[in-house]
């Protein structure tokens, strides 16, 4: 794609938005390998410890999982809408939608907190006596559960920080209806976080 050059305050600024987005995608592929590797580990252990994984999954609260799925899908919608709004020059609408995305992300994290603390209060956490008394399949299930949903939650936190910077940029007009590739980059990252959850949810919560 051709480089789009824009006149900004009398000097030429060289941009290549397509290449910028391609850069983000290349980063997303490394995320695919990071989580993909873990999904492969999960798949193998589920294959080996089939019944024990089913038993362990019964401990998880699928309602909270489903609620968090709805929250993340909706936050994906709001960040996508915020880009369209900004393109159309509706700055305030775009800011509201970005803030709404952050609010949904906090909702997700609050649910995660409730879920994890309920598990931990029942004595199920890595290395706990109660967990170590269980079968090896169940120990593996909960180990993978904490690592994979924990790493995903870390991505949610990073996503919130990224989107907050974009909101600040939008307010300051450094991200505007003509120049919004950074908002798109944050959006792509956020959608990836959503896609990972789309697979985490059924594999952990719905196999019981």
């Amino acid at each position: 794609m051709s480089t789009s050059a824009e006149h900004v305050e009398g000097h030429m600024e060289h941009r290549d938005d397509v290449a910028s987005r391609m850069g983000v995608w290349l980063f997303l592929f490394t995320e695919l390998l990071l989580f993909g590797g873990m999904f492969l580990v999960f798949a193998v252990y589920k294959y080996i410890h089939y019944d024990e994984f089913h038993l362990a999954a019964k401990e998880l609260n699928s309602s909270i999982g489903a609620l968090n799925t709805i929250i993340l899908l909706t936050s994906s919608l709001t960040i996508a809408l915020s880009i369209t709004a900004l393109q159309q020059g509706k700055k305030m609408l775009s800011i509201y939608l970005q803030v709404l995305t952050i609010v949904f992300a906090f909702g997700f994290m609050i649910n995660k907190y409730v879920e994890w603390s309920s598990k931990i209060s029942h004595g199920i956490y890595p290395g706990s006596e109660e967990l170590l008394a269980k079968t090896s399949g169940e120990i593996l299930f909960f180990g993978l559960y904490y690592v994979m949903t924990g790493l995903h939650a870390l991505h949610v936190i990073i996503g919130v920080i990224l989107i907050a910077f974009m909101t600040y940029g939008t307010i300051k007009n450094t991200i505007n209806s003509d120049k919004y590739v950074r908002l798109e980059a944050a959006g792509l990252y956020w959608h990836l976080v959503d896609v990972i959850w789309i697979f985490l949810f059924p594999l952990f919560y719905l196999i019981a």
Binding site: R21, M22, L77, A80, H191, D194, I198, F199, P202
Partner: peptide
């Protein structure tokens, strides 16, 4: 569940992540 998750990811990637309107190179990658 895996089939449905794949369909959901397809929708997110093509529409929300704009792969449908991006250059074809993105799809190949």
């Amino acid at each position: 569940a895996l089939i449905v998750a794949t369909i959901k990811s397809y929708l997110v990637v093509t529409i929300f992540m704009h792969i449908k309107i991006e250059s074809k190179v993105f799809t190949y990658f």
